[in-house]
Simulated scan of single mutants.
Amino acid sequence: MKASEAATSAGPATAGPVPVGDRRSRRRAETREEILDIALDLMAEEGVAGLSLAAVARRLGIRPPSLYKYFPSRHAVYDALFQRGQEQYRDTVTKAAARAPEPGLAAIGTAFDAGARWIMGNQTLAQLLFWRTVPKYAPTPQAYAPALQIRDLMHGLVLAAVERGELHPDAAGPAGLDLLASLITGPVSQQLANEPDVPFEEGRYMPLVARLPDLFAAAYPPTDAAAR
């Protein structure tokens, strides 16, 4: 009997015990995520800048000093939440752009729509990500890395629109990308400031999101050569 046949006849191998170190790492990771969830709930209740680590510890059922084993400071909690939010936002707009019926402006519009919907559904995180509501907090390079990936994604979508003759090549420059980011910020900021509890489809400013690609194209109309 071959060794492989012997293994098959003996039945499936059973997993051995999880090493103690792995169990501890898993529990630590789970506790960190629980702390972040509690922090997010408190930020929604008390305001993004009003986060108290003592309140987080009480809700978790531990003494405040024990919390510092997981996060050394309040800004460290903000940083972990910033990275979590940016990764979620990045994944949302990336998947939306990939589902667009066409590349270029159509994909930009699909990404904008998905991003705006994510922001409306995650308003507390969005305040931390896009409006810098916590005094003296700035994200670390690691936490900010997904935001740069989002910019790279949008750059690629703009380049595709340029190649399709939908935009002037200048649209793919730094000023063009800054304008593109500013366009989506406007309607979303207005919606959150005036009607934060209104559903996306009923919002006063949300219909403007669908018009943003055309506004961008009006700012960077294609040249005759690019349009051919």
Rank of each mutant, 00 (worst) to 15 (best):
R99E: 14
P135H: 02
A114E: 00
R63K: 12
Q88K: 13
A111C: 12
P139G: 10
V134W: 08
G121C: 03
I119S: 01
E163K: 12
G121I: 01
Q142V: 12
I119G: 01
T94Y: 12
A111W: 11
G165L: 06
P135W: 07
N122T: 08
A126K: 03
R117Q: 10
L125T: 00
R58W: 01
D79K: 03
K136A: 11
Y78F: 15
L128M: 08
D91M: 00
D79H: 06
A126H: 01
R151E: 13
L60H: 07
A100M: 06
H75I: 11
Q149K: 11
G165Q: 09
L148R: 14
I108A: 11
G156S: 06
A161H: 00
P139S: 00
A111Q: 06
T110H: 07
F112A: 13
A107R: 04
V158C: 02
A126C: 12
P103H: 05
Y137A: 11
V77R: 02
A96V: 01
S66F: 10
R84I: 01
Q127G: 15
P64L: 12
R151V: 14
G104A: 08
R58V: 14
A96L: 12
T133Y: 02
L153Q: 02
R99L: 13
T124C: 09
A147C: 06
L125A: 14
I62K: 00
A161N: 09
A76K: 07
E166N: 01
A143I: 02
A160Y: 05
P64K: 15
L129H: 03
A96Q: 09
L67Y: 15
E102D: 12
Y89H: 01
P64G: 11
P141S: 02
L105N: 04
G115V: 07
L105F: 07
